[in-house]
Computed example of a mutant assay.
Amino acid sequence: MLPKWFLLHWRLLLWLLPLSAIITTLGLNFYVKTVTSSHRYTNPTEVPVQRVAIVLGAGVYPDGTPSPMLSDRITAAVELYKLGRVQKLLMTGDNSSDDYDEVTVMQRYATERGVPVEDVTLDYAGFSTYESCYRAKEIFGVEQAVLVTQSFHLPRAVYTCRQLGVDAIALGTPDWESYRPQTIMYYNLREVISTLKALWEVHVTRPLPTFLGPFEGIK
């Protein structure tokens, strides 16, 4: 029979391990939010002038319309364009199959709202925030940009792009104000884990995107 002190030590260890994991996870998320805080904006009129806005993709419906979150991102980017804060829009998203094309939907939505088609560049292989940032630099030559996405997504997006060589600032679209609390709670919880994955990718593994290809640039 094991002594009581041994059992107590094991019980304590079983409590400390998950507690340490939780504290580490929250601490790393707090770090990412802190170091990106000065690069994040919620008012488009306060965003410093940049040449390019990178609009990160989200879901589209089978009828060819953007999801509410994606339409909010595109609308915010169009506003930046009309305010003269940016000159070009880089739409980056998922076109992994013939019947799913986020970026063409994004382009159409923006041009219908007054952005000339020649000022919209499409990245069909932005399958994740990491891949969109990586390809923005390596394929499209973007070294400075305004990222446009929901506010809950901003810290991870800004941190990832800056670590991959894009001097990024960001405009956050409303989230808690616009969607059901349950929806935003889910996305915020998911961000906690996604931020850990982003830190692992940019600091440890540095994986290549699914697709690279020749340099295209943005005219």
Rank of each mutant, 00 (worst) to 15 (best):
M1E: 09
W5Q: 13
L8D: 05
W10Q: 09
R11T: 04
L13G: 06
P18F: 05
L19E: 01
I23M: 06
T25C: 15
T25Q: 10
G27K: 00
N29C: 14
F30T: 14
K33A: 09
V35A: 02
T42H: 07
N43V: 03
P48D: 05
V49A: 10
V55E: 11
V55P: 12
G57N: 07
G59Q: 15
V60Q: 04
Y61F: 15
G64C: 08
G64R: 06
S67N: 03
L70A: 08
S71H: 03
E79M: 11
L80T: 10
L89H: 10
L90R: 11
G93S: 06
D94T: 11
D94L: 11
S96W: 05
Y100F: 14
E102P: 03
M106R: 09
M106C: 08
R108H: 12
R108F: 01
Y109C: 12
A110Q: 12
A110D: 09
T111K: 13
E112Y: 01
E118S: 12
V120N: 12
T129S: 11
Y130A: 03
R135E: 04
R135M: 04
I139A: 07
F140V: 11
G141Y: 08
V142Y: 03
E143K: 14
E143Q: 13
Q144S: 15
Q144F: 01
A145S: 15
V146N: 09
L147S: 04
V148Y: 05
T149P: 02
Q150H: 15
H153T: 10
H153C: 07
L154S: 11
A157P: 06
T160W: 07
C161T: 12
R162I: 04
G165T: 04
L171R: 12
L171M: 10
G172T: 08
P174I: 07
D175L: 00
Y179T: 10
Y179H: 13
T183G: 00
T183F: 15
M185S: 14
M185G: 12
Y187W: 15
R190F: 06
E191M: 01
T195L: 05
K197V: 14
K197E: 09
V202R: 00
L208F: 03
E216A: 14
G217P: 14
G217Q: 14
